[in-house]
Design a protein around this nucleic acid. Sequence first.
DNA 1: TGACATTAGTGACGTTTGGTGACTAATTCG
DNA 2: CGAATTAGTCACCAAACGTCACTAATGTCA
Lengths: 233, 233
Amino acid sequence: MRDRPTTSPAKTPTRRAGFSVDVALLTPHGKQLAVLLIRSGDPRTREKWIVPHDSLKTEETLDSAAERLAHSALGSAPSWIEQIGAFSDGRRHPAEVELSVGYVALVPLGVPAPVGGVAAWFPTTDLPVLAARQRAIVDAAFERVRDRLDQAPIAFRLLPATFTLSELQGMYELLLGRRLHKASFRRALQGAWLVEPTEEWRSEGRGRPAQLFRYAPRRRRSTRRGVRFELLG
Amino acid sequence: MRDRPTTSPAKTPTRRAGFSVDVALLTPHGKQLAVLLIRSGDPRTREKWIVPHDSLKTEETLDSAAERLAHSALGSAPSWIEQIGAFSDGRRHPAEVELSVGYVALVPLGVPAPVGGVAAWFPTTDLPVLAARQRAIVDAAFERVRDRLDQAPIAFRLLPATFTLSELQGMYELLLGRRLHKASFRRALQGAWLVEPTEEWRSEGRGRPAQLFRYAPRRRRSTRRGVRFELLG
DNA sequence: TGACATTAGTGACGTTTGGTGACTAATTCG
DNA sequence: CGAATTAGTCACCAAACGTCACTAATGTCA
């Protein structure tokens, strides 16, 4: 359970800051991503589910507040976290603060579900009603994950420490929402020197056993590419 | 040394919010980018130059506050603007607020220098001392421009409405800090359907006249590319 | 036990994309 | 006129990429 120093009634006489830090925790869930929401402890709020949030404590940075929130909502540290930005625009927020700083964090597959009852994973397509500003933060979190897929080791952070190449490809397919070709995927992965094989093999029911790999990026030649106009509009 | 939000000097009686909006205005300046700084009107501040900033006015969104700041500092509207993120960490800021929301904005080449004396363009390599948090915002602004170069029409927004292809290439070279090959650049540009020729030609002193183009992106086929591992580390 | 389904992993071919040097074109300057 | 300068294009080659087809190793089931 999280502390809510900001839930003093709307008058909030001793509010330390005019803003909150909100963390959207994401994890793979079936064929899509899911976000961790917690039950609103405040019966006065209109929405029943909220994104973990809090105001800054003394001597705390934004990043450390986000990490504290993630750890406290989940029971363990996330494997990746990044600030999304500042959200305001007068939309509803459970803490009724003027501004919220949104964060996105990744939780590996297989981390046990959070403490019983008060928190739950909600898949992308089945979100409950959230306060408008928190909904915007969650939407931006999903979008940020897709956008950062090529720049940060998103897929690797969503998998356990060792994994098969098929699992890695499956994670990319989940995140991209489309199928990839096995040979192309592996050739590109090979060329990037991102994974190294372990001695272990895993036999998953039928079929040939798969070798386990771990994420171990090496320094690679920085190919000076030309300008890419494709993504521009 | 960090700022102490509780020691707000008694002169700031009606501060509406515990945060500011700060805008880093960038424009091409010789062979690099420059940022617009204004003279600090407050003799008590240690730093002589500051980034334009203000708190949110009533019923104002973050984006509209940033646009207002840009317009008021420059006299005209910027050609592109985007939020960078929230900055805190207890570093110094002229407004002595706990948090600042940073924005980056682009100003086309050739826009006249701002009003006399109180503002000036400072090239990347020759920045004066700024409050630590504003310095962080300026650094992030330069970085954001480089990062967005492939996703947003940065270079086009820094040029006048019509331009030669050599000018466009020169702008990319300025932003990337390296030379590009003419034939590759034009082939890629051609394939992206981003510009269309005008009927005008410009004769710039010596050499063959160049045709003028305008930015006019067309819908193009979304090539489903494979995964790019190169940028990952 | 042996055929078959299933999953892992690789090889090879053709196409596309991208880097490069060399060429032609049109202008100014002397 | 010819040299210098800038614009614009072409052709060649290498790297990257999509695709199909193949081999490999396991479980399942008649």
